[in-house]
Computed example of a mutant assay.
Amino acid sequence: MTIYSDDLVRITHWTSGLGACAFGVYDAVAGAGSDLHGLVMTYCGAVLVYTAGGFQDYLRRRDTRVVVHLAGNPGASLPQICAATGLHKDRVGSSLQRLTADGLVLSESGSTAISRSYRLTR
C-alpha cells in the first residue's frame, strides 16, 4: 500500500478532528473547563473531519482533470499535463502516482518523471 502526501493530510485531518471532538465532548460533559470551551473544541474537531472529506473531493477533481487530459492526449508528458491543466508539477506527479498505482494510467519510456510519457490503460 502506498501512502501519498495527500493521503497524510486527509488522515491527519481525520485523526486530529476526531481527537478534538472527543476532548471537546469530555470537557463539556466532565466540566473540566467551561461548557463553551468544550463546545467550541467539539465544533473545531467536526470542521477538521468535514474538511478531510472536502479534501478528498478536491483530489478526485484533480485526478479527473489529469485523466481527461490523458484521454485526449495519450503519450503526454508531465510538463504537457501541467501546462494543459494549470496544475503544479508536484500535484500532477502525485495524481499520476496514485492513478498508476490504481491501474488507470501507464507510464511509458523515460528514466525520469519529466521525460516519461503517460497514457490511460485500455
Results as ranks from 00 to 15, higher is better:
residue 1 M to G: 15
residue 1 M to I: 05
residue 2 T to H: 08
residue 2 T to W: 01
residue 2 T to N: 05
residue 3 I to M: 09
residue 3 I to R: 14
residue 4 Y to K: 14
residue 4 Y to V: 08
residue 5 S to F: 06
residue 5 S to K: 13
residue 6 D to P: 01
residue 6 D to M: 05
residue 6 D to E: 11
residue 7 D to E: 13
residue 10 R to I: 15
residue 10 R to Y: 01
residue 11 I to V: 11
residue 11 I to N: 02
residue 12 T to S: 13
residue 12 T to W: 00
residue 12 T to C: 03
residue 14 W to Y: 10
residue 14 W to F: 11
residue 14 W to K: 13
residue 15 T to F: 04
residue 16 S to G: 00
residue 17 G to Q: 04
residue 18 L to G: 14
residue 19 G to M: 08
residue 19 G to P: 05
residue 20 A to Y: 00
residue 20 A to T: 04
residue 22 A to G: 11
residue 23 F to M: 14
residue 24 G to L: 00
residue 25 V to L: 14
residue 26 Y to Q: 11
residue 26 Y to E: 07
residue 26 Y to A: 15
residue 28 A to Q: 06
residue 29 V to S: 09
residue 32 A to C: 07
residue 32 A to F: 14
residue 35 D to Y: 05
residue 35 D to L: 14
residue 35 D to G: 14
residue 37 H to K: 15
residue 37 H to C: 06
residue 38 G to F: 02
residue 41 M to K: 07
residue 42 T to Y: 06
residue 44 C to T: 12
residue 44 C to E: 04
residue 45 G to P: 02
residue 45 G to D: 04
residue 45 G to R: 04
residue 46 A to C: 10
residue 50 Y to I: 03
residue 52 A to Q: 01
residue 54 G to P: 01
residue 55 F to I: 08
residue 55 F to K: 10
residue 57 D to T: 10
residue 57 D to G: 06
residue 57 D to K: 13
residue 59 L to R: 15
residue 60 R to L: 07
residue 60 R to I: 10
residue 60 R to H: 09
residue 61 R to E: 08
residue 61 R to A: 07
residue 64 T to G: 07
residue 66 V to C: 10
residue 67 V to E: 11
residue 67 V to F: 03
residue 68 V to P: 01
residue 69 H to K: 03
residue 69 H to E: 15
residue 70 L to K: 13
residue 72 G to A: 13
residue 75 G to F: 06
residue 75 G to N: 10
residue 78 L to M: 15
residue 78 L to Y: 09
residue 78 L to N: 14
residue 81 I to H: 06
residue 81 I to F: 05
residue 82 C to P: 01
residue 82 C to F: 01
residue 83 A to W: 00
residue 84 A to M: 04
residue 84 A to S: 14
residue 85 T to G: 03
residue 85 T to Y: 10
residue 85 T to W: 10
residue 86 G to Y: 11
residue 87 L to M: 15
residue 87 L to R: 02
residue 87 L to V: 02
residue 89 K to H: 08
residue 91 R to F: 00
residue 91 R to K: 08
residue 91 R to Q: 05
residue 92 V to S: 09
residue 92 V to W: 03
residue 92 V to P: 03
residue 93 G to F: 03
residue 93 G to N: 03
residue 93 G to S: 11
residue 93 G to Q: 02
residue 94 S to G: 15
residue 95 S to V: 04
residue 95 S to L: 02
residue 96 L to K: 06
residue 97 Q to H: 04
residue 97 Q to N: 12
residue 99 L to F: 05
residue 99 L to P: 04
residue 99 L to H: 01
residue 100 T to W: 00
residue 100 T to Q: 05
residue 103 G to Q: 09
residue 103 G to K: 08
residue 106 L to W: 00
residue 107 S to K: 03
residue 108 E to C: 10
residue 110 G to Q: 07
residue 111 S to P: 01
residue 112 T to Q: 02
residue 114 I to Q: 11
residue 118 Y to K: 07
residue 119 R to P: 02
